[in-house]
Simulated scan of single mutants.
Amino acid sequence: MIQVVRTMLISRSLDDTVAYLADFAHTQEWDPATVSCVRLDQGPVRPGSLWRNVSRFRGRTTELSYRLDVQESDRLVFIGENSSAVITDDLRLTPVSEGSTRLVYAAAFRFKGLARLAAPFLRKDIDRLADDVAAALPRVTAR
């Protein structure tokens, strides 16, 4: 398993930040690896809501099904899965001031089957991806 953690300051209130991040379709705006992300169900975003995420990583396109697993006033957990990996995104949020929020973004990549053998070679690329997300997310949410 590979785990990465990044902390960033978001220039939005806690409630606005949670509402924005709860809709995983927004990953198209702040995750440079995401090619597309489409909600698969309807109604309010809630635990159990589903998205199809298409990402490009190391020159290859892959599709994951994501589910909102936990939705709290200060925490969101998404679980993405396909035949070769399970990715857990755990977002913990803390108000810093009236208009800003600290986000601790933790992602765990658990590889399945033969993909487990590649995990040690993916660490640098996953770290780079986490750095790119940490740079893009505060910039995008400041709009």
Rank of each mutant, 00 (worst) to 15 (best):
I2V: 09
V5T: 13
R6S: 04
T7I: 08
S13W: 04
L14S: 10
D15G: 05
D15S: 15
D16P: 09
T17L: 09
Y20G: 10
L21N: 01
A22F: 02
D23H: 08
A25Y: 02
H26F: 01
A33I: 00
V38R: 12
V38K: 13
D41L: 03
Q42Y: 13
Q42F: 13
G43N: 03
G43D: 01
P44E: 14
P44F: 03
G48P: 04
S49E: 04
L50K: 13
W51K: 03
W51T: 00
N53E: 15
N53V: 14
V54T: 11
V54M: 03
S55E: 14
R56L: 14
R58C: 15
R58G: 11
R58P: 06
R60M: 14
T61D: 11
T62C: 08
E63G: 10
E63C: 10
L64T: 07
S65A: 13
Y66W: 11
R67S: 05
R67P: 00
L68A: 05
L68P: 00
L68Y: 01
D69W: 00
D69V: 13
D69G: 05
V70E: 02
Q71I: 00
Q71K: 09
E72L: 13
F78Q: 04
I79S: 04
G80D: 00
E81M: 08
S84H: 11
I87W: 02
T88C: 07
L93F: 12
E98Y: 01
G99P: 01
T101M: 08
R102Q: 09
V104C: 07
Y105M: 12
A107S: 14
A107H: 06
A108N: 12
K112D: 09
K112T: 11
A119V: 12
P120T: 09
P120H: 09
R123I: 14
R123T: 07
K124T: 11
D125W: 11
I126P: 04
L129N: 02
L129Q: 14
V133S: 03
P138Y: 03
R139E: 05
R139Q: 08
R139F: 06
V140H: 04
